[in-house]
């Protein structure tokens, strides 16, 4: 009904504003509603830590990190585990980081990697291709749900749905042995990651990342990240196993 009213109203006032209004109506009536296009090459702005999102990536020089900026709400058992990790590292033993041996960072740490990633936005799915080891996230938006009885994986199972111009992505089925960030922040097998992704402008993408883990966290833990579009930049090859001379055993001792 609104549609017909607007059509009658339009011919008298052929302004740009009215034309834009008509386009939106047409989009709403189409089979697949028009959504913002996230395609492009993006680099994150806030640094590699959820617990201290104030350190940028581009400037190159950074002071030490301060986890009181966004302290992880760990349960006592997981807080104890995290403190043990930090104490071992302080003592010179780089423990609790599978990426030291070229295993993937996993989700959600992928989203705070300091390297660019590329989004391919196609009907029914978005594909995120990361620099490090060409890691891939596939986010399905075609209405399917998660598979039953998921095998735990590094990047999990991601299902997206649109809320207006925001893509809401739920990721489950994650391995317990990855770390949430490079400081060794732990999580449990119950981890669920919910992301709200939207464009803030043509060259700025926002991802509000919430980690829900009833075993490791006392409440949901969130960090809002932004990403800047890198124009004319291609993703470069990065093969971690090429020359990894810093692999360690579980005690944190160099293996070669």
């Amino acid at each position: 009904m609104h549609q017909s009213t607007r059509k009658q109203w339009l011919p008298g006032r052929a302004t740009a504003l009215a034309a834009a209004g008509l386009l939106m109506v047409q989009a709403a009536g189409a089979q697949e509603p028009a959504h913002p296009d996230f395609s492009g090459v993006w680099l994150q702005d806030q640094g590699v830590l959820f617990s201290d999102p104030t350190k940028g990536v581009a400037s190159g020089r950074h002071p030490g990190y301060d986890e009181s900026k966004n302290p992880p709400p760990l349960t006592p058992a997981y807080a104890e585990r995290y403190e043990a990790t930090k104490a071992a590292r302080k003592a010179g033993r780089p423990v609790d980081d599978p990426t030291a041996n070229c295993l993937p960072p996993g989700m959600p740490r992928l989203m705070v990697n300091p390297f660019p990633f590329e989004i391919l936005h196609t009907p029914g799915r978005l594909t995120f291709i990361f620099t490090a080891d060409s890691e891939v996230r596939r986010i399905f938006t075609d209405g399917r749900g998660h598979e039953e009885d998921l095998d735990p994986t590094f990047n999990g199972s991601s299902i997206g749905r649109w809320e207006g111009d925001t893509l809401v992505v739920e990721t489950i089925g994650l391995r317990e042995d990855t770390k949430l960030q490079s400081t060794g922040l732990p999580h449990s097998a119950e981890l669920k990651v919910v992301e709200r992704i939207r464009l803030l402008g043509p060259d700025k993408l926002e991802d509000e990342i919430t980690m829900i883990d009833p075993v490791a966290f006392t409440r949901p833990y969130s960090s809002t990240r932004t990403y800047t579009r890198l124009k004319g930049e291609e993703i470069q090859e990065y093969v971690c196993a090429d020359n990894n001379r810093s692999a360690v055993d579980p005690s944190g001792k160099l293996v070669k």
Binding site: V48, T99, S182
Partner: peptide
Amino acid sequence: LLPAGNDLPEGAN
């Protein structure tokens, strides 16, 4: 010449 993120938190890049 400097490496980027010389003072990044451990495990940065």
